[in-house]
Amino acid sequence: MNKQVTLSCAGIIGLCLVGVAAAEDVHIRTIAATCMTCHGPGGKSVGKNPNLAGQNKAFFVQSMKDFKSGDKPGTIMKRHASGYTDAEIDALGDYFASLK
């Protein structure tokens, strides 16, 4: 019986989370997910590419700007960083900083 009640509550909470998800910026969340292809699921890298989860926002935004301008040279990241708007990079900074 207790187990039944617990499961039911989990269902209700889960359902309410859908409401939370709706408030998320789907555009940014999807871009962030595409970054994770190289930087690891949840932004936690299992290779030598850096973690994105918990990344300091100011550092992230500055790094992306430096990749874009060429101040931080020599990697594939110039190709990627140049494809996003400044507003997207700013929002991605918030998103990755919020991941634990």
Binding site: M36, T37, C38, G40, P41, V46, K48, G74, T75, R79
Partner: peptide, 29 residues
């Protein structure tokens, strides 16, 4: 396709390392 995209003209060891890292992360994903 955004204009800054493109390919490297010469292979190097640094990108070999990134390729290995890419494979680990995409498989995990």
């Amino acid at each position: 396709a955004q204009p800054e995209g493109g390919a490297t003209a010469k292979g190097d060891t640094k990108n070999f390392g990134f390729a290995e890292s890419w494979s680990k992360n995409i498989w995990a994903d």
